[in-house]
C-alpha cells in the first residue's frame, strides 16, 4: 500500500471502483506487461507516425496532432533503454494525462483492463535505479508480473541536455 506512491494528481482519480481497488490498462512491450491507471488514459489510437522533435532524447518519438493540440509521444521501449521501437500500423499510442499535460506513449499492444486490489501491489525490488524510478509498484496477474508505470518519471528528462 505504501509502496504505491502515485502522485497526488493522478492518485486521486481512482475512486471509481472503490477505495481499495484500482483499474489498470495493461499493455505490452515485447514479452513484458505494464499497466497504467485507467483514469489517466484519455485515448488509445493506432500509430500513425509523428513529427520528430530535434534536440531531444531518443525516447521522444516526436509530436502528433490530437484534434488541434500538439501532443508529444514517448517511446516506452526506448525509455527503458531497449532501443527505439520500429513502429508499424499495429503499434499503439496510449494518450494519457500527466499532471496538466497530455502525453502519448508508444507501446506494442494494449492487452487488457485489469481490476486489482491495492493490497496486491508489491514494492519494486531495490537494486536497479531505473526500475525504481520508472515503476511505482508491481502486481501479479495470471501469474505474470505487471509493472505499474510512473508516468511523471517517464516524461521527465526528455531534453537532450537534461
Amino acid at each position: 500500500m505504501e509502496a504505491l506512491s502515485l502522485r497526488e494528481d493522478n492518485g486521486d482519480k481512482t475512486a471509481v471502483v472503490g477505495q481499495n481497488t484500482l483499474q489498470l490498462i495493461a499493455f505490452s512491450i515485447g514479452e513484458q506487461t505494464y499497466g497504467v491507471e485507467i483514469t489517466t488514459v484519455r485515448e488509445i489510437r493506432a500509430w500513425n507516425g509523428a513529427t520528430p522533435l530535434p534536440n531531444t532524447r531518443d525516447f521522444v518519438r516526436g509530436v502528433i496532432n490530437l484534434r488541434g493540440t500538439i501532443v508529444p509521444i514517448f517511446d516506452l521501449r526506448a525509455r527503458f533503454g531497449d532501443g527505439q521501437t520500429s513502429p508499424t500500423k499495429n503499434h499503439v499510442v496510449v494518450v494519457m494525462s500527466v499532471g496538466d499535460k497530455w502525453v502519448g506513449i508508444l507501446v506494442d499492444a494494449v492487452s487488457d483492463i485489469l481490476t486489482v486490489s491495492r493490497e496486491d501491489i508489491h514494492n519494486v525490488p531495490e537494486g536497479n535505479a531505473i526500475d525504481t524510478e520508472l515503476l511505482n509498484g508491481i502486481i501479479t496477474h495470471d501469474s505474470r508480473m505487471v509493472g505499474l508505470i510512473d508516468l511523471h518519471a517517464v516524461v521527465n528528462g526528455a531534453k537532450l541536455d537534461g
Binding site: L53, N55, T69, I70, W102
Partner: peptide
C-alpha cells in the same frame, strides 16, 4: 501557432 510547451516543454531551435 500551437504551443509545444502546453504538453511538452520548450525545445531549442524550435
Amino acid at each position: 501557432i500551437k504551443s509545444l510547451e502546453e504538453n511538452f516543454e520548450q525545445v531549442e531551435g524550435i
